[in-house]
Structures are given as C-alpha cells and as structure tokens.
Design a protein around this nucleic acid. Structure first.
Length: 283
DNA sequence: ATCCAGGACAAGT
DNA sequence: ACTTGTCATGGA
C-alpha cells in the first residue's frame, strides 16, 4: 500500500466508480484500477480509501478531490424529499458519491456516450487513450486521456478508427473549440446553470442531457439533472402515473428541479445506479 | 435476428 | 409544437 486517503464518511467505491460517471476505472475483485490525470492507481477500501500507484507520479490530493472524499454527504441526504422510491435508491446505493472530474475528459467522454452502452463507451475511450494519449509507463502500459489539443490535432478518420462512429466529428469539434479557447470549460462554474447549459449545447453533438452530465460531474452544478433513457423511465414510472399524455423532457426537468431540490443531480445518480443494478439482477 | 444503448439534430407533419 | 428518420456500432 502506497497511501491512505482520509475520508470522514463511509464511501462505496463500487457504487461511485461503477455507476457510469467515469469510464476509465475497472474493477478487480474488491479493488478498482484506473487513470486520473497523469497517473494510474489501484484503490480499495479499508475503513478509508487506500491504494497504490501503478504508473506515473501519484497525486493523492487530486485523488481525494476526484472522489469527493472531504465532502459531507449527510446534508445532501437530508435535503432529499421523503419519497419511497428515492429513499429506496439511497438505501441500496449507500456510499455513492458524485465524482469531481476533469471537465474536458468529462465532456469528451459524454459526447462519446450517446446511444451507447456503458461497456462499449469504456472500450471506445480506452482505444482512443491507448492510441492518442501520453504513455504513463507501468506494466501493462497505462495511458493518459488525450488532451483537447491532442484530439484537435487528429483527423476525423483517426477518431472513427477508435470505433466512435458518427460521434467522431462531434468530439473533434469540441476539441477544436476548447483548444482554440472559444470554449473555456474552467469558467463554466462561474456562470448560471442556464448560461452554462447554453455554452455547452452550442457544441454540435451536445444537447441538454450531455451538457447536464458535464455540469454535474465536472463543474459543480449539484442541481444539474441529466435525463437519459433510464432516468426518464424511472421518473415516468414513479411520479407521472399513466393516463395523461406523457410529459416531455422539459416538464420532467422542471419537476426534478422542484421535487429533488438543490442536490437534484445527486438524487439522479442514486436513481440511475439503483435501477440499473435492479435491472442487472433481474436479468 | 431484432432490439436497444447514460442522444442529438434535421426534416417532415 | 410534436413525431419520425438518421447517424455507427456492439452487446444482449
């Protein structure tokens, strides 16, 4: 063991790293291995997060921030409505946290996520990182996530060859906008939620869902509420009983904001992970 | 084989 | 304003 990361509240690495927020972490038994920034790590739980560095120079502060280890969860849970379905999800996914990701990696990853299953998103990102990211050493070799500048320098064909199909031009366009300074991801957190959404959805291939993923997972917008097929389903089943004409996403967004409150994005993540676990179990 | 996946967008009603 | 077609690709 190389390091211990202080963690005031209990955390579930499996729920946190395995809930489709980040795509570069792989489970090995009780441990998780993956890349953050310019280092690769193996992490597991021994009453706190412990681990070792697999490649590159480890940065425990970056890891701690990524995993939101110092962020109290109790106020979030207390802010949630007393709702049977949400409480069931919270019980089932105790210790799940919303990660604090790098905005570029998050944006690029979710551009690649559209109408793809999570295992395949992982595969595309891994292929792209191996081919176009900096080598970090280690055995087997680990690779950094390609920077916006590195992606901007590629051709659409090179990206398509990573298996991303029609998403290739979308990723390339985003990389060019970020690399050219037309889109300053770091400054999004200064804006209102509405303004930040507009900046992101101005990119081709980035609609409301993907923009909200980026704002929630990497820009500190705790109320951002991504509605994908799974979340849409659980919203309709639980809070929009059939009968009337089925509501559109804009109506679901309004409902989520008022019903789940200022930490709605976290509620969303509990719901998302819970219904997917339930689905896998049934099948 | 057919359907669906952490969607977005244009085109046709 | 709402519905449908299209964009690639792999896994179930």
């Amino acid at each position: 063991m190389d390091f211990r990361l202080p963690c005031p509240e209990w955390l579930d690495l499996h729920a946190t790293l395995g809930s489709g927020q980040a795509f570069r972490w792989v489970r090995h038994g009780d441990a998780w291995r993956g890349v953050l920034g310019h280092a690769a790590y193996e992490l597991w739980w021994e009453g706190e997060v412990v681990g070792r560095t697999l490649a590159g120079r480890g940065n425990t502060r970056a890891l701690s921030r990524f995993l939101a280890l110092q962020e109290p969860q109790t106020p979030i849970l207390h802010s949630f409505p007393q709702d049977p379905m949400l409480q069931e999800a919270v019980q089932a996914c105790r210790g799940l946290r919303v990660l604090r990701q790098d905005p570029w990696e998050c944006l690029a990853s979710f551009i690649l996520s559209s109408t793809k299953q999570i295992p395949h998103i992982r595969k595309i990102i891994e292929t792209m990182s191996q081919r176009h990211g900096k080598s970090l050493g280690g055995s087997p070799t680990w690779y950094a996530f390609p920077t916006a500048a590195e992606v901007a320098a590629l051709s659409e064909l090179q990206l398509r060859e990573c298996g991303m199909g029609f998403r290739a031009p979308h990723l390339l366009g985003a990389a060019r906008a970020v690399d050219a300074g037309e889109l300053d991801l770091a400054s999004l957190r200064q804006l209102s939620h509405e303004e930040a959404l507009q900046r992101l959805t101005a990119l081709r291939g980035v609609g409301t869902k993907i923009a909200n993923c980026v704002l929630l997972f990497s820009c500190g917008f705790e109320q951002a509420f991504p509605i994908d097929t799974w979340v849409r389903r659980v919203l309709l089943e639980n809070w929009f009983p059939a009968g009337k004409t089925r509501p559109r996403d804009a109506e679901l967004q309004d409902f989520a904001a008022s019903f789940f409150g200022p930490w709605a994005g976290h509620a969303q993540q509990y719901l998302f992970h819970h219904i997917r676990l339930r689905h896998d179990k049934v099948r």
